[in-house]
Simulated scan of single mutants.
Amino acid sequence: LMPRIHQWTRGVPRRINLLCDRALLGAYAESAQVVNREILDKAAAEVFGSMPSSAPAPSGRTTPRMPRWGWPLVAGSVLFGTTALTLAVVDRVREPDALGLASAEARRMSAPAGVAPPSTGRAALPLAPASAARPATAAGLTLMPSGLWGQLTPQADADAASLFDASPRDEASAWVTMAALWGIGVPTDASEDPCEAGARQGLQCYRSSGGLALIRQLGRPAVLTLRDETGRAAHAVLTGLTPRSAVLRMGGRAQSIPLSELTELWHGDFTTFWRAPPGYTGKLSSGQSGPAVDRLAAQLASWRGEPSPGQPVKVDDRLAARVSAFQVAQGLKPDGVAGAVTFMQLNRATGVDEPRLQTEWAAR
């Protein structure tokens, strides 16, 4: 697998660490004893999205020769990732509440009145790499690494009526669940808008009526508002999605529902969190400069496997062309303008620490 790792990473240490870490988690989730080519490629697709343009294509072409010093570097990164995974498994075995279903009494004891406690296990750094090897805690929930979401098997499929009856009527409950996934604290009542609470802790809200297609593309949990035939509203957090079913998290449990049933209650509108770059207030326009533009340039360079610019930049034709190329690779409209969706996909492609949508789970 060493030549394949070099194909995907081009020998860049940061990319090697990201790929090996995700591949090891994938092997663990599938109970595989070794990381094979299929697991490695799947992990690479999750981390990088596509093979770097200057690297050979996956099928049958000659792998570029790695320098003599490169093999120890790759091997060392794999060893480091293996150690991290082992520590994660040990931590998970020690954790008595592995599914995150902490008691209500424990939450009351640990949280200030009216506020869900923030996480102390996840740093809210916009460019922090995804710490997939260490669970974090927030609001009484154990946050499992994104690569191990498949271990959280949802309950059996529910019909629309029973799911609606089980969902909380107050939106604040859904936002407490969402905040727990992000490791932040939000009010447990309607005393403050959750988007304002998130903004104080480095997050922004993104609202859309783009439905399941956009949620699949963004690959992140979302708060949904459900309505029955009488117009009554209920709220849940979408945490998993497959071609035929969805997983909604309500309070301390996860419930699977066929998409045909979900669409009886939900019509495509959703809200989610995302980590915005510093100084971001809206789509970046031509000639604009500042921290948000610098972050954009740095993330694009990281995605391309290039060094960061290292100096202030502004939005010009060259940067817009890079944005457009990234948008094409991600299936976005290639307008060369960096807005919330482009930044969310950049965060995902460059390993920013954000919750991921569960896309498969163990058969019941």
Rank of each mutant, 00 (worst) to 15 (best):
I5T: 07
W8Y: 05
R10V: 00
I16S: 03
R22G: 05
Y28Q: 04
Y28F: 07
R37M: 08
G49F: 04
T62I: 01
T63C: 08
P64H: 07
P67L: 06
P67N: 04
R68E: 13
V78I: 11
F80Q: 15
T83W: 12
V89C: 05
D97Q: 06
A104K: 04
A111H: 00
V115T: 07
P117Q: 00
P118D: 02
G147F: 03
L148D: 08
W149N: 12
T153K: 07
P154D: 00
D159Y: 03
A160Y: 09
R169P: 01
E171A: 14
A172E: 08
A172I: 06
W175D: 08
V176W: 00
T177W: 01
L181V: 03
A213H: 10
R220F: 03
L226C: 01
L241T: 07
S245R: 15
R249G: 03
W266F: 03
G282K: 09
G282L: 13
Q288M: 15
G290S: 12
A297E: 11
S302P: 11
V313L: 10
V315M: 15
V315Y: 14
D316G: 15
A320W: 02
A320M: 15
V323N: 12
Q330N: 12
G331D: 07
T342K: 02
T350L: 11
G351F: 13
A362D: 08
A362V: 05
